[in-house]
Amino acid sequence: MRNISALVFASGLAFLLLVITWQFILGGAPMLIGEAILQQAAEELGAANLVTSVVLGYRGIDTLGEIAILFTASTATSLVLSSIAEKTSAKSKPGLRDDGTILASSASLFFPLLMTIGLYIILHGHLTPGGGFQGGVILAAAFFLPLLAVPGRGVNHSGLALVEGFAGASFIVIGIIALFQGKAFLQPLFGHGEMGSLLSAGSLPLLYIAVGLKVGAELSGLLANLAEPSGNGDETLSATESASTEQTSMQAEKTKS
């Protein structure tokens, strides 16, 4: 019954959305602020990557909100999971379980590589596609890969907290410094430099470094938090169990239909 009504209403919704789409396609979407930004962003901010000018310049506060969301999610996740973490530490901690030398050593091999790539992408965020988010994710992958290869290996949470705290704080502090200089909050600092070079676009690269570190630390923290319980013996069992319940529920659905 629920499924039928869901399908009926969903097809209605799909139809209506398509009708709407057809209606506005014919007019063509205007590009008011986009065009203006394209024309004056390079001059105003000096960043070759115009998307970066938008992300860190015109919509800098969005980015602040966004890293705050990641931080919030990780705080909330650790709040939710903290009782598990306590339980795990209370129980006998299972020793490092080696899942194979090849996996472990290649993970360690990849670590510097990923770190380099990540940092490169972060640093060139104002010049080329990429930036703090993309680079941050790669950084996180660098940290998470060894964890996947050797489950149960702990992550240095206090170190991560330090990085994420200071990275986030420095983003805001850069914004506030502008305020103290009599400018607006998050207004870019310093000169533009020569466009297209590494040291250009004022304080945008600094902001992107902060974002990159923050995202990297945040994501590794999140992933580590989620992965930690599965480092436990009984949790791997639960994973298979969940798969079986999935199957049974699927079967149940099948029999129903």
Partner: peptide, 14 residues
């Protein structure tokens, strides 16, 4: 338009 790209970046992370 660069604006939607920036927005999408944000919303993906969210």
């Amino acid at each position: 338009d660069p604006v939607p790209q920036a927005m999408v970046l944000t919303s993906i992370v969210i």
